[in-house]
Amino acid sequence: MLESEAGAAFVLAGGTDLLVRMKLGHIEPALLVDIKRIPAMNSITHSARGTRIGAAVSGAELGEHKAVARAWPGVVEATNLIGSDQVQSRCTMVGNLCNASPAADSVPAMIAAGAKAVVVSRTGRRTVPVEKIVTGPGQTSLARGEVIEAIVLPARPARSGDAYLRFIPRTEMDIAVVSAGVSLTLERGRIKTARVVLGAVAPTAVLVPAAARAIIGSKLDEDALHKLAAACSAACKPIDDKRGTIEYRTKVAGVLGKRAAQIAFQRAGGA
């Protein structure tokens, strides 16, 4: 259906972005496909081998899944930061991803977690790392007729933790000015693997390997944190806009990277 529509065609999951764009007159869809009643897109499956979250699962539903929240607190918290309780009842991770805003809350956390998107079309199914989906503000790598069916999170090794933090001027209802997601695993008290991702500091969320390198092998001491912050700030290519300045975003990216790493470290059982 999506493939054959000649006009502007959109997938409707929670609608919390799509309906706003329709209201403001930015888009006039010729076709809307509501996916909320498709069973495969509507469920969460969680096992020792990994977690699969359907594209139509709302933020609130994800937040209520205790096992997922225990395994991936950062991912769940990030998703639960999208909008108000009203928006949580409707919004989805996949919608957040496909809306392709550089400031999307769930995306840095998903990338840090090594999440993959299950992309389906009439002709088949492929699995793509989340960081390959968004190519720029409002732009994705999805081809016409392709939709994301689910997000898959890998199995969680022991002594792992993740965290997501964003800076907003108010306490709620804002879009992230800067954000940071960190996921890491410990071995004998030291960080063995880590992924550090920043949001709202570039056209897409950015994975910062240098920031991960800064803390791998460490016990997240002052020196490692300092280097992590510096690497985060160095990875920023932000813009000046109504939500923040280049200077501000660059500085605070380091601060949030540091703080998110500390939380993730603690969650992994680090001391």
């Binding site: 306490t171 209802m173 804002d174």
Partner: peptide, 12 residues
């Protein structure tokens, strides 16, 4: 709009 014209919310 109320998203970027930020009046205080209850938790502020």
């Amino acid at each position: 709009g109320f998203l970027d014209y930020r009046i205080p919310v209850c938790s502020d």
